[in-house]
Structure formats: structure tokens, C-alpha cells
């Protein structure tokens, strides 16, 4: 009797919870699943007007498209450099600011302030800094160095990596600081009593406890790395130097040309890559952080 009663109770609970989840599910369907389905559909047709099914032709054409390959290469390079730098530098900053140093809260504010500044305003300042006759070149000329055409040469990648780090370090640092403060102090004290050095404590205790946050910051930084298109677009337009040409340039331009099929194929392809990358990250996190108390 009791068994049947608890079964009925669980079933009722399940039905009730499913009903409660319906509005959220409807929202996810309408705003994410269905649009993604439409994107997949567009990737399988010849153009957005005729909408004739062409199978995988768009994907084949995409792989052979020089502009797409260049965009992928640049985006991958940028993400491979900027994202790890963003994680490592922000972790470093968080560790430094975690200590009781003077001006800690002022420094925190300084690092967070780039987040509050509108992108279009920031771009104007960066233009002044990185222009051929800009501040950085004038300073380097004072030291006898040749000026660098930052925005019209491969060195532009340095400028946009710097812009990305400047914009995102603060937020990542806050996330790490929060995670660092949640590491159990007693484990660190025990380790110290046992004679563990600073490096050992960092690698075997702090990093393990930080692994979920590192994963989260990594994923967030990766998503933010694609948004760098905004700054590059405002600085250099639709067609920058080919080293600054990102995947979103390709997508934006194909959108303007009504080549929705190319745009959609690129989006689906890159989504699949992102899913693989994130799956690998999550597996690494689950292996590295498995002994960590939740």
C-alpha cells in the first residue's frame, strides 16, 4: 500500500514538474530550438528566395571557400591565443588581488570599468591609440623605433588581442576571486601543516577547486572572443586586412548579400565545432576536478 502510494505520489510529482517546466521549454523552443532548425534548413537550400533543397552542397562549397577558410583560421588563431591568456591573466590577477594589498578595491574597480564603457566609444579611443600616426607609434618613434601600421597589417592581431583582454579581464577576475574565496580554508591549513609548498597547494588544491570556474570562464571567454568582431568592424569596416577577417565578418557580409545559405552552413558547422570543444573541456574538468567536494 505504502509502496503504491509513494509510486502514485512520485508520478503526480513528475507530472506536476513537467507542467511547470512547459513555459520554459516553450520559450527555449521558440527562441532557440526552432530558430536553430530554421538555420539548419537554410543551410540545405540554394538561396533564401527560391529555397530549393540542395543537400550538402552548401557545406561542400563552404569548405572550398577561401574567405571562409581564412575567417576560420583567423578566428581559431585569435581564440587559441586570447582565450587562454584571458583565463591565465585573470586568474593571476585574482590571486594577487585576493591577498590583502593596499588599494585592492580601487584596483578591482579599475579592472571592472572596461565592461561599463560602450564599445563604440572605446573604439574611438583605440583608433587614436593604434592609428598609423597614433599615440603608440608616436611613443615608439620617440624611442627610435619604426612606426607600425597596426590596423592595416598582420600586427593588427596584437591590437585586437589587447582590446579583448582589456575588455574581459575584469569580469573573469571577479569570477575567479569569488571561486578562490570559496576554497575551504581548513584544507589549505592542513596542507601547510603537512609541509606543502605554495606551488603544490596551488596545483593540487586550488586548481582543483577552481576547475569548474576555469571551465566556465573558458567557455565565457570563448563566446566573448567571437564578439570581438564588433570592435574590428567598427575599426576597420566590412573588409579589414585579411589577418583581422573573422568568422563573423564572413557571416555579416554574406547576410548583406542575401547569401543566407552560406551564412547558415557556416553557423551550423561552427556550432558543431564548439560542441566538440566544449565536450572535451567538460570531460577534462570532470577528470581533473573529480575529487573536489561539491
Amino acid at each position: 500500500m505504502i509502496f503504491r502510494k509513494s509510486q502514485c505520489g512520485r508520478r503526480r510529482e513528475k507530472i506536476f514538474s513537467n507542467i511547470c517546466i512547459l513555459p520554459s521549454l516553450a520559450g527555449v523552443m521558440i527562441f532557440f530550438i526552432i530558430p536553430f532548425g530554421i538555420v539548419v534548413r537554410y543551410s540545405l537550400v540554394n538561396n533564401p528566395v527560391k529555397k530549393e533543397y540542395v543537400g550538402m552542397d552548401n557545406y561542400k562549397a563552404l569548405m572550398q571557400n577561401d574567405a571562409f577558410r581564412k575567417a576560420m583560421q583567423n578566428t581559431a588563431f585569435f581564440s587559441a591565443i586570447a582565450v587562454p591568456l584571458a583565463v591565465i591573466l585573470s586568474l593571476g590577477l585574482a590571486i594577487i588581488l585576493e591577498r590583502n594589498i593596499r588599494g585592492k578595491s580601487v584596483l578591482r574597480t579599475i579592472f571592472l570599468s572596461p565592461l561599463m564603457v560602450p564599445t563604440a566609444s572605446v573604439v574611438l579611443v583605440w583608433q587614436v591609440l593604434f592609428h598609423n600616426n597614433g599615440t603608440i607609434n608616436q611613443i615608439s618613434e620617440m624611442f627610435g623605433r619604426e612606426p607600425v601600421d597596426w590596423l592595416s597589417s598582420p600586427k593588427g592581431q596584437i591590437a585586437i588581442i589587447a582590446m579583448f583582454l582589456w575588455k574581459n579581464l575584469g569580469y573573469n577576475m571577479i569570477l575567479f576571486m569569488s571561486a578562490l574565496s570559496n576554497i575551504p580554508k581548513d584544507i589549505l591549513e592542513v596542507a601547510e601543516l603537512e609541509g606543502a609548498g605554495g606551488l603544490y597547494k596551488f596545483i593540487h588544491i586550488k586548481l582543483r577547486y577552481l576547475s569548474p570556474t576555469i571551465l566556465f570562464v573558458f567557455i565565457l571567454s570563448m563566446i566573448n572572443s567571437f564578439k570581438i568582431f564588433r570592435e574590428v568592424y567598427l575599426l576597420t569596416g566590412n573588409y579589414p586586412h585579411n589577418k583581422l577577417y573573422m568568422l563573423q565578418h564572413f557571416m555579416n557580409n554574406t547576410f548583406n548579400q542575401l547569401d543566407y545559405q552560406k551564412l547558415s552552413a557556416a553557423a551550423v558547422f561552427f556550432s558543431l565545432i564548439m560542441i566538440v570543444i566544449m565536450a572535451v573541456l567538460m570531460i577534462l574538468e570532470s577528470v581533473f576536478g573529480k575529487d573536489v567536494e561539491s
Binding site: 532557440f32 530558430p35 538555420v39 568592424y233 547576410f255 564548439m274 560542441i275 565536450a279
Partner: peptide, 18 residues
């Protein structure tokens, strides 16, 4: 969840700058 996030990023792609 992460796949959904990836979908979010790329269905929000193609910043309409025009």
C-alpha cells in the same frame, strides 16, 4: 546545455550591421 549555448551564439550570429 552547452550545445544549446553554442546554438544561442550562432543563431544570434550575423550581426545585422545594416
Amino acid at each position: 546545455a552547452i550545445a544549446l549555448a553554442a546554438c544561442m551564439v550562432f543563431t544570434g550570429c550575423g550581426n545585422k550591421t545594416s
